[in-house]
Nucleic acid binder design. Sequence first.
DNA 1: GTCACACTTGAAAGATATTTTCGTCCGCTG
DNA 2: CAGCGGACGAAAATATCTTTCAAGTGTGAC
Lengths: 347, 347
Amino acid sequence: MTKDLKDSFNAAGSGRRPGAPGAAASVSGGIGTSGAGRGTATGGTSSGGSGVGEAPPAPAALAAKVRTLAPSMTRSMQRVAEAVAGDPAGCAALTVTGLAELTGTSEATVVRTARLLGYPGYRDLRLALAGLAAQQQSGRAPAVTADIAVDDPIADVVAKLAYDEQQTLADTAAGLDTVQLGAAVTALAGARRIDIYGVGASGLVAQDLAQKLLRIGLVAHAHSDPHLAVTNAVQLRSGDAAVAISHSGSTGDIIEPLRVAFDHGATTVAITGRPDGPVSQYADHVLTTSTARETDLRPAAMSSRTSQLLVVDCLFIGVMQRTYESAAPALAASYEALAHRHSPRTR
Amino acid sequence: MTKDLKDSFNAAGSGRRPGAPGAAASVSGGIGTSGAGRGTATGGTSSGGSGVGEAPPAPAALAAKVRTLAPSMTRSMQRVAEAVAGDPAGCAALTVTGLAELTGTSEATVVRTARLLGYPGYRDLRLALAGLAAQQQSGRAPAVTADIAVDDPIADVVAKLAYDEQQTLADTAAGLDTVQLGAAVTALAGARRIDIYGVGASGLVAQDLAQKLLRIGLVAHAHSDPHLAVTNAVQLRSGDAAVAISHSGSTGDIIEPLRVAFDHGATTVAITGRPDGPVSQYADHVLTTSTARETDLRPAAMSSRTSQLLVVDCLFIGVMQRTYESAAPALAASYEALAHRHSPRTR
DNA sequence: GTCACACTTGAAAGATATTTTCGTCCGCTG
DNA sequence: CAGCGGACGAAAATATCTTTCAAGTGTGAC
């Protein structure tokens, strides 16, 4: 709509993707103002044959990607992305000029959009589109994406909500960068101490993660109080880890402690729906959650929470794998300890 | 002259595509069209000697077609066709020049082969190839039902976890009693005050619900402290509501406050995975969450949380529907109030 | 309120890829 | 063995994609 906004981060954003499109590995690269260039732990993994970026042509993940990246697109690009996501088959049949005309933009914009979506150029996007179309064709047709209405019967609410959340999960899984995830897991698994920041709805996710990590014997703490978070962040140093959870990616109360942790040498992880947001500046590893449309009856907080929780679960399982020797007994012990809190057996 | 012929080709090509992009509504429509959509009029055009010329762009039957047409092909064309049928994915990645080199032929031959196979040109063959590859790919993907193992690569963890949680959601939705849910919604929507009990992982769900209800102007409070919970429960009376969340259904710390609330005349709701457990004794309405198997690496807390959250979301949306007049403005106001907590601007 | 800056955008130039044309060469037939 | 028909590829012609650049537009600063 009238959400025109231009942003100062874009400078950072575009600077972040230098030559190759979507070089996620270097997300936090040189952005940190605090000098002290910290190499990203992820190193130069992957990077396939040709100079193409690490992002492999996403086959089915495209719709998810569009949704995730939409907020960081310009108006024209959004129009293009929308057309592409809405009718893959139709767009696959169009040349770059045709698609430009259809969306009322220019060829340059179409190419730019393709780049943003992770393809080397429009040609490759088109190929992926053809693949996607074929999949949809063979797959299922019944997509009941209807929004929830005020007068929907309760049974419909349940069905729609469940469907939406499933969709969110699929999107999130598809859009999650496993390289970044792996790096984040490594950081957490080896951390001396883990601080987790989150406020509002994200605060609960932060607590969830902290609870889980504590259960497997790691030293983790979730902070919802911005002041205390910063105060604690100062204590962090190399070998520690900090995780920031913010859907918007621009929550000041979250960014500040993460920045402090970053500056003090801790390995930092951001879980956000806006990987181009300010919070990523101070994150060694960025994990992207899906951004679903919100409606009157369905606050964004709902799907972002679902998405965040999946990411957090993945993190947790990953950490548990790495520390299985010590984690499994610790987890068992925590169950043991709780047993007596339950009423006798009710089978 | 020849130019005219070619133009007619193009006209045919674009003529076939116009509908789809225009109306983004029909997602699969487009492909169906292209699959079946034979440009009959133009189809017969030129296209080499054999009568096969006008066959529609083959969807998946490409391999068969290659075999059928092979006899009528020249040696060079056969080489091309063979390569295409043998490795659709690989060939889709090649330009006409690349494929010519690979097969030791020329561009012209490749194009001729594409024509023989029923496509307007190589470009379209390539698109079809991409689609074919995608189908093959997706065909052999869907088996991720296995449990998560200690040595699973991180990508598998993500896929399995997402799949599991999706399953949990589906189960929960299927098992949810909408009558009970409706009754619980009514109780909450009209309550003077709402207390919510949950400890441990369920405590976060309780807080989530409380947060949401508060946002739409209801008086809700989540209690994790058993003592305070009971203390507060004593204050409840008819016209109030209490919600207990416990996966096991036998958590003493949760049952006690619910009992007190029940005895004092409040309408009580239990969200539990064990509807036959003790907690249900004191619940006017029982909402059942799904109970997924747990494994070494996947604590039950994880899926129970997913399930509980869906139930809680349904409750919330239901309440919101009932109180839309007052809820919507309240929700909007809460967003408004948070706006300044975010960094300047984000697109 | 005005200015300057930065970002977005499309037009057009520049590069690739595809298609067509056309001449050569091979193999076959008489 | 000469003549013929067609396969084949090189290169021109065209379409398509990509990049560059300058103008337009909105935003924040002063």
